[in-house]
Amino acid sequence: MNSNFQNSSQLELQIQNVLKRIYPKNPITVKVVVNPSNPNELKTLSIKIENIREGLFSIDIFTIIFQNPKLDFNALKKNTLKIPSANSFKANVFLSPDALENYIQSKSKSLGRKNVNVSIKLSSPFVEATYDVPTSQIGKESQNILSKFITKSLNGYAAFTFKVKNNALSAYSTKVILNHFLLPEQVLKYFTSNHNPFEEVPQIYPFSYRLNNVTVQKNYLYLSN
């Protein structure tokens, strides 16, 4: 299966063209490294797609790196990317603070919530958020739990850590200040256990992967399998 390519740059272009049909407006980079001892064998195949809008998420950078992939060249000729096997692969998803803010706005819109203002900052190992949300825009159950602390609006600060398992993203609040009050741990525990996992990170077609690691880096929330 891994034959029939004249050189790596030609293969890179071929794969890029296939992906361009799916993501016509996105910058795409393809890098192929051939096994030096066997030119018909691929050592690595790396694919990077930028600025993908998928569901509620704006993914800044998506990269997938295959080790010793076996490509289906017949499918490639028909403009389909199929990688039936590989020794291993690593999928990487990068979400910037802007992407996280956009996600919150999109999620709020999808739930019919208005005037939700959240600003995100990454401070490894925490994601920090300052927020200003009208009380009427949160659920009745949450309003009851927070009744001691809320007035007309909810504003304050929160520091979170994240976990991801099988693409399902969970947030754990480690410190929340609401309307000038530091929320007690029991309240944080309630929200942590009742609202997690809060979202499924969409997979980027035509690839299939399960994200299980998340780290907060300087510029991005970095998810990988």
Binding site: P125, A159, T174, I177, F181
Partner: peptide
């Protein structure tokens, strides 16, 4: 104390 803890000066992540 609670009010002081909630001031904007305290908008910092918990210490590791």
């Amino acid at each position: 104390i609670s009010y002081q803890q909630g001031s904007t000066d305290n908008y910092v992540p918990p210490e590791v």
